[in-house]
């Protein structure tokens, strides 16, 4: 049966993906090069205005801000997630699967619900404020919800399980004898961790970072809910172009940039992983 023409098996799915993914995506690619019509429609004349507008200081600022928030979230998620993965990999072998299972479990529940959980904790009548008052804190607590910090916490919280998974994979495959050898040669535990363990598990770190960064920079739910619409990220900007401002060509241009950032980072990450595994092969 191998190699009998399998096309008829793949045809329905490929037709579906072509109709409802490939064509729509090509459509917005094209849309990015058209002019916005007078009343929100689309005028079919070629222009680079939309792409140029992305680099307008006003929108470039939003891009930088989104990148900063996404970068900070990815950095924190990688540090915390790597520590967690390291601790899981150091646990007794029979406990590791269950620890990993519970680390990933929250990732399976609804994204909106997980974000909402932080509104419950952080709002003015929320648990954290209540706790502070109960502890005898009378003064005005700083605003917790609807801040950039709340958005970063929400993003880290939502994507942390993925980072733990991504970092656990290389950590669990790491040969413990390598770390022992390093320590036998006189390196301290910290030096061994920094110069041996981290470089050898770098592909996991890169995957985790890229994943969190890419999902955060295009996110519009978390900034809308935890940022309270106080500031915009690219995702919110795209959302607005399509649902309120009615400037579809500009919205399409923005999402093209989003895809470009994503593809660039994924390529870098593949490159970094291949280099890391290549280096390992040379060593052995």
């Amino acid at each position: 049966m191998k190699d009998r023409r399998p096309l008829y098996l793949m045809a329905p799915a490929l037709a579906w993906l072509t109709a409802f993914m490939v064509i729509p995506c090509l459509l917005i690619l094209a849309l990015a090069f058209f002019r916005r019509g007078l009343y929100g429609g689309i005028e079919y004349t070629f222009t680079l205005e939309n792409l140029a507008l992305v680099f307008d200081p006003l929108y470039a600022g939003i891009f930088l801000k989104s990148a900063a928030i996404a970068g900070l979230s990815a950095l924190i998620a990688v540090i915390v997630g790597y520590a967690a993965a390291f601790a899981i990999a150091a646990a007794p072998a029979r406990r590791q699967p269950i620890l990993l299972f519970f680390a990933v479990l929250p990732f399976w529940s609804n994204y909106l619900v997980r974000t909402y959980a932080w509104i419950v904790l952080l709002n003015r009548e929320g648990l954290i404020t209540g706790l502070a008052q109960w502890l005898g804190f009378d003064g005005e607590l700083p605003k917790l919800l609807y801040t950039e910090s709340a958005v970063v916490v929400g993003l880290v919280y939502n994507y942390l399980p993925f980072v733990i998974l991504a970092c656990y994979a290389p950590l669990s495959r790491l040969n413990p004898e390598i770390a022992e050898a390093s320590q036998d040669l006189g390196a301290s535990a910290w030096t061994t961790f920094r110069r041996v363990t981290v470089p050898l598990t770098f592909p996991g770190i890169a995957t985790g970072f890229v994943f969190v960064f890419v999902l955060s920079i295009g996110n519009f739910v978390t900034p809308a809910l935890l940022g309270g619409g106080q500031f915009q990220m690219i995702g919110n900007l795209v959302y607005a172009q399509f649902l309120t401002a009615n400037d579809w060509p500009f919205g399409a241009a923005l999402s093209m940039i989003l895809i470009a950032i994503m593809m660039g980072l994924l390529t870098l990450q593949t490159f970094a992983s291949e280099r890391a595994s290549g280096a390992k092969r040379e060593d052995s």
């Binding site: 295009g218 519009f220 995702g235 399509f242 999402s255």
Partner: peptide, 12 residues
């Protein structure tokens, strides 16, 4: 990204 597929389908 969800948002990209979402707007692509909306436009389509």
């Amino acid at each position: 990204p969800d948002i990209v597929l979402a707007i692509a389908l909306l436009s389509f």
